[in-house]
């Protein structure tokens, strides 16, 4: 397949970098396993560039990227049929449609999250940092902070719930936290 013209790269890069996080989240919603989603993201990114000549300037890049990502997810699932798939195609379809509809909301959520993280207690922020560090496990984090693994599971559940509530509250009030 021909590559897009070089002069379109200046159009592609801001769109790509501006939307990649949301495309990643979209793939993770359809394929809720980090390693699998990362693999599909890499393939999707490559296809987005290869097919960029098919994207009309000024169009809805996120919607276009999601269509390609959805195809790549289904392709990945087809290849994996030798192994049992956890969720059905109906589940993937339902989530895919909903996630595209919620695009604007997720954009606002991402912006609001920064303020919500700032509102966490330092101890909770520290726990989030440790837990989400690449390669970290709950057991390792528990050992680092001197708590039980179960205690860290519960704390992370409480923190994520608090962040979701904060984001929802912020969006209901019409602005970042």
């Amino acid at each position: 397949m021909d590559r897009p013209r070089h002069d379109r790269i200046e159009e592609f890069i801001p769109l790509f970098t501006g939307h990649e996080a949301r495309v990643h989240a979209y793939i993770l919603a359809l394929l809720p396993n980090w390693a699998d989603a990362e693999e599909v993201l890499q393939e999707t990114n490559a296809v987005l560039w290869r097919k960029f000549d098919e994207f009309e300037s000024g169009g809805n890049y996120f919607a276009w990227a999601c269509r390609i990502a959805r195809y790549e997810v289904m392709n990945f699932r087809r290849k994996r049929q030798r192994e049992p798939l956890r969720f059905s195609n109906e589940f993937v379809d339902a989530v895919a449609d909903e996630a595209v509809e919620m695009a604007a909301e997720m954009d606002a959520q991402q912006k609001a999250l920064s303020g919500c993280i700032d509102k966490l207690a330092e101890r909770d922020r520290d726990l989030v940092r440790r837990r989400y560090t690449e390669g970290a496990t709950t057991k390792a984090v528990a050992a680092q902070v001197g708590r039980s693994a179960e205690g860290v599971y519960k704390a992370m559940a409480r923190i994520r719930a608090a962040l979701l509530r904060c984001v929802e509250h912020s969006l209901a009030e019409g602005g970042p936290a």
């Binding site: 989240a25 959520q109 999250l113 979701l164 929802e168």
Partner: peptide
């Protein structure tokens, strides 16, 4: 579900 996964993805990508 979509909100929660999006939150998890955003936190993960920051690290």
């Amino acid at each position: 579900y979509v909100r929660f996964i999006h939150l998890h993805a955003t936190l993960s990508r920051q690290h």
